[in-house]
Nucleic acid binder design. Structure first.
Lengths: 207, 207
DNA sequence: CCAATCCGGTGACCGTTGTCACTTTACCTG
DNA sequence: CAGGTAAAGTGACAACGGTCACCGGATTGG
């Protein structure tokens, strides 16, 4: 994967520094990249594939906050990196995902030296901040059926597939709900002609 | 209010630039500082008092996300400032609040020139990001009684008062609930000896 | 091919919260 | 002090979503 191609806005000097200090890593679908409570030692940048970021609670509840796609970075890793804090979220590879890891010590240095880097950091914060606000909106103001519909639409957009390979159980996890509830709501959506249900797959109609 | 005293980490040069370009403003308790959908033209920094930041939805629902106290800045104003976007939140003065407004054009300039400023910006993002995550936790995983207790404890901490001057209706607004529900839960808490209820006030016991 | 397993469908039930309607209480003001 | 008003208490009810129990169909693997 060509870094310069993925980040055309980065100065060549910055690319060189990153290439010198980064280590690559590949995660298989479903593999956990980061756990709640784990120490963060690197900034994670996605080159290829996609990561899901979850918030967890003590009793096994989990809740999908956002996706990190290629050319994006995990804001949480940056945040924690600055203070060597533990992660407050969980990250899981959704598909086969290629990332690079940058040692946190580099962060301060890059921020000072490269304007494109500090813009990238700020831009990442901004985007994630807005996504968190959207997440808050949804759980605070929407019912499960509306949240489900948003979830499916977003999945279609992120994967580019209309037929989503998902079980009801997986959807329930992501929305911090239960399988039965999701099944019921999907049935309703099917009756309204919004989706077609298959085994292990949900086909989205009327986009 | 002495800027240098409030921000000891700022370089004297930075203080000078801020003083030259800032305009002061005072808001009365309950006054709306920023509305959802409004264009942001300045960065807001609180010198004295406290602001409440809400997320609103179309149907009049609102939801308290966090407070901005003295020596703190509104992360949203920074985020929007960078791209001249509209605000996605509402800000209301909780008490008599003194702020300074920095024109957004200054942002880029300061970021490049003053390390203490870019650290301040990053630090602000980091803190707000975590508060958003906490807010998500609460609405996603906690029941109203737990959220209410957290809300009261936080108010005690923020105001320094054990006897909170709040009506049940105001609490209901902040938690996006209804007065009756809050009244019921407060009654329960009173029976458990956690609070003492007065007219227009809630006294917190056992801290 | 049959058993085990996984996925999904379904009905019953319940707790939490929101809503409605109304009453009671505290406080303020003329 | 009387009357008005804002705040708070309360009971009834409904909607949403979580849980339980159980079933049936599809898939897989020995």
């Amino acid at each position: 994967m060509n870094l310069q191609q993925l980040f055309p806005q980065f100065e060549p000097g910055l690319i060189t520094v990153i290439e010198k200090n980064a280590t690559g890593k590949v995660f298989e679908p479903g593999e956990v990249i980061m756990r709640t409570g784990q120490y963060i030692k690197s900034i994670v940048i996605v080159l290829k594939g996609r990561i899901k970021i979850y918030r967890e609670n003590d009793e096994g509840g989990e809740f999908l906050i956002y996706y990190v796609g290629h050319g994006e970075a995990c804001a949480v890793s940056m945040i924690c990196a600055l203070q060597s804090l533990t992660s407050e979220i969980m990250a899981v590879a959704e598909e086969k995902t290629e990332v690079i890891l940058l040692p946190i010590q580099l962060m301060d240095d890059l921020m000072g030296k490269f304007k494109s880097w500090s813009q990238f950091v700020i831009q990442t914060y901004r985007q994630r901040f807005e996504e968190l606000l959207t997440a808050i909106d949804h759980i605070a103001f929407l019912n499960m059926d509306e949240r489900l519909e948003f979830y499916l639409k977003r999945s279609v957009k992120k994967t580019g597939k209309i037929k989503l390979e998902l079980t009801h159980q997986q959807v329930a996890y992501d929305l911090n709900s239960s399988r039965e509830v999701i099944s019921r709501l999907l049935k309703k959506m099917e009756q309204m002609g919004k989706v077609k249900l298959h085994r292990n797959a949900i086909e989205f109609l009327n986009i």
